[in-house]
Simulated assay, not measured.
Amino acid sequence: MIRVLLADDEVIVRAGVKAILAATPDIEVVAEAGDGHEALELARVHRPDVALLDVRMPVLDGLAAAAEFRRAAPDVAVVMLTTFAEDEYIAAALDSGASGFLLKSGDPYELMAAVRAVHGAPRSCRRKPPAG
């Protein structure tokens, strides 16, 4: 079972993403957060395999949260969810430690495939914190 933490400040978006993932027998949403800070706190408790983070959230946005996941929970694969397809967001997400980047307007099957892909990726392929 792939354990997922979902963080988005829009409750209806979280409900939709959760419903999509609940339709799959191998994925379970173990926690939901409304901001990046709450996501990090919940990750310590629930120990997810994958964190789906909205890019823009209050308190701590998804990009900053991804960087913190990279330091504090490097075994958690991070996938960014956003409505913004600009190259600068994609580059910033990858620089922050995200393993993937998805548009909220995408196909639900892409979401399921992305969760499975980043979970199945060898640990050596995941974004790691810089040495030092």
Rank of each mutant, 00 (worst) to 15 (best):
M1I: 13
I2W: 11
L5N: 10
D8I: 14
E10N: 10
I12A: 12
I12R: 05
V13Y: 02
R14M: 01
A15V: 13
A15K: 14
V17T: 04
I20M: 06
I20E: 06
L21Y: 12
A22D: 11
A23F: 12
T24S: 13
P25N: 15
P25D: 15
P25I: 14
D26T: 15
D26C: 15
E28K: 11
E28P: 13
V30P: 11
V30T: 11
A33N: 12
A33F: 10
A33I: 07
G34P: 07
G36Q: 01
H37F: 14
A39L: 10
A39I: 11
E41H: 15
E41L: 13
L42S: 14
L42C: 11
R44D: 15
R44T: 14
V45P: 13
H46E: 14
H46S: 13
H46K: 11
P48W: 03
D49E: 08
D49S: 05
D49N: 11
L52G: 00
L53M: 05
V55Y: 02
V55P: 03
R56F: 08
V59C: 12
L60F: 12
L60W: 04
L60I: 12
G62K: 10
G62Y: 09
A67S: 07
E68R: 15
E68N: 13
R70H: 08
R70E: 07
A73I: 08
P74A: 08
P74V: 05
V76I: 05
A77D: 01
V78N: 07
V79D: 00
V79R: 00
M80H: 04
M80E: 01
L81Q: 04
L81E: 03
D87V: 15
Y89Q: 03
A91Y: 12
A91T: 15
A92H: 08
A93S: 08
L94F: 14
D95R: 15
S96D: 10
G97Q: 13
G97D: 09
A98N: 01
S99D: 00
S99Q: 04
S99A: 06
F101H: 04
F101A: 03
L103S: 05
L103N: 01
L103E: 01
G106N: 10
G106E: 09
L111E: 02
M112W: 07
A113R: 03
A113E: 04
A114P: 03
A114C: 09
V115Q: 00
R116L: 11
V118M: 05
H119W: 06
H119P: 03
H119Q: 13
A121T: 00
P122R: 03
S124Y: 11
C125N: 01
R126I: 03
R126G: 06
R127Q: 10
A131E: 11
A131Q: 10
G132P: 02
